[in-house]
Computed example of a mutant assay.
Amino acid sequence: MQRTIFTTPVVNALCRWLSLGYLKLAGWRVLGSLPPEAQRSVFIAAPHTSNWDLPYTLMVAFVLRLNVHWMGKASIFRFPFGGVMRWLGGISVDRSKANNLVAASANAISKARGALQLIVPPEGTRSKTRYWKTGFYHIAQTAQVPIVMAYMDYSRKISGLGPLFYPTGDLEADMRSIKAFYAPFKGKNAAQFQAD
């Protein structure tokens, strides 16, 4: 993986300090910590209902001292912002092409030197959707790493890391358990998030 803002020492320290200050002034609390066994992991990013989710997610990542990469639609990686988005940990996803994103993502996690957390929004969009995509599940299962249930609740101004989840292979039952965890959380545009 390429160098990102999270692996640039002086910039990382400055961004962490700024993130701590901004979140405190804005009334947000960051909860939880990343266990040692989840240094390489897949993060669920939910609820994902607003463009504001990205800057808040990055600030929370700085506060928790994470090394995150996140998936975003290819259009935000076009000139002139592509280089900046990749430096912020972004990985371009072209939803119009069929490709083996699961295998490539799992391989990147397995081959990473040191810690790497891959953030995947299960809704796959900020728009209202009833069905969650299961790519995050298959990436974690293929890479044999845990899923970290990360959350952001705008109604209570809390964000953080929930429990680890290890895929059992029973996708239907596992998705029910995962969605049950997310049911109480409210996104910025709460009506667009459905975890049932």
Score class of each variant (00 low, 15 high):
92 S>E: 06
98 A>K: 14
150 A>Q: 07
159 S>T: 14
1 M>E: 03
68 V>K: 01
86 R>M: 03
88 L>Q: 01
81 F>A: 05
104 A>V: 11
82 G>D: 01
1 M>L: 14
71 M>K: 02
140 A>Q: 05
99 N>K: 12
29 R>K: 07
24 K>A: 05
189 N>T: 01
176 R>G: 15
92 S>N: 03
173 A>S: 14
124 G>P: 01
9 P>T: 12
168 T>F: 12
23 L>D: 06
92 S>F: 03
67 N>T: 10
42 V>Q: 07
82 G>W: 02
34 L>N: 10
103 A>W: 13
160 G>M: 02
108 A>P: 02
153 D>E: 14
100 N>P: 01
94 D>K: 04
54 L>I: 09
58 L>R: 00
43 F>N: 00
148 V>M: 09
105 S>G: 14
85 M>W: 02
17 W>G: 00
161 L>I: 08
76 I>Q: 15
30 V>L: 06
60 V>C: 07
23 L>V: 06
161 L>M: 08
45 A>E: 02
12 N>V: 04
132 W>R: 13
161 L>C: 01
150 A>N: 03
30 V>I: 13
38 A>R: 11
165 F>I: 08
157 K>T: 10
115 A>H: 04
14 L>M: 15
84 V>M: 15
122 P>K: 01
171 L>K: 13
118 L>H: 02
1 M>D: 05
98 A>H: 14
61 A>W: 00
186 K>H: 06
183 A>T: 14
138 H>Q: 14
83 G>T: 13
12 N>K: 10
181 F>V: 05
104 A>I: 11
35 P>C: 15
19 S>T: 05
160 G>H: 02
5 I>R: 00
19 S>K: 01
79 F>A: 09
148 V>Y: 04
193 F>W: 07
32 G>H: 02
85 M>T: 02
27 G>P: 10
102 V>T: 13
54 L>F: 10
133 K>F: 10
102 V>N: 06
19 S>M: 03
158 I>S: 01
177 S>Q: 15
70 W>C: 03
170 D>Q: 09
29 R>C: 00
36 P>V: 12
165 F>N: 01
129 T>E: 14
32 G>F: 01
